[in-house]
């Protein structure tokens, strides 16, 4: 399964979810859905904006883990 590590990156960059959602240009609700792993997918444009805002690589945000 794919794990979203936005909260880890937010902690590293000392950034709030609200600030990130504003920088990325999506609503706080959608950012929350994404952060909590409830989204069915992520657009490349959103991933691009998140990576730009958090100054990181997609691999820092997305992680693959074996289903237990």
């Amino acid at each position: 399964m794919i794990i979203i590590n936005i909260d880890v990156m937010l902690a590293k960059r000392k950034m709030s979810v609200t600030e990130l959602s504003e920088k990325v240009g999506i609503t706080l609700v959608n950012m929350s859905v994404l952060k909590n792993g409830r989204a069915k997918g992520i657009k490349f444009s959103t991933l691009d904006a998140i990576c730009k805002a958090l100054v990181c690589q997609p691999a820092d945000i997305l992680e693959y883990r074996e289903d237990t």
Partner: peptide
């Protein structure tokens, strides 16, 4: 169904 799926892709 397609619309709901599309809306859940952020």
């Amino acid at each position: 169904v397609i619309r709901e799926e599309n809306e859940s892709i952020i």
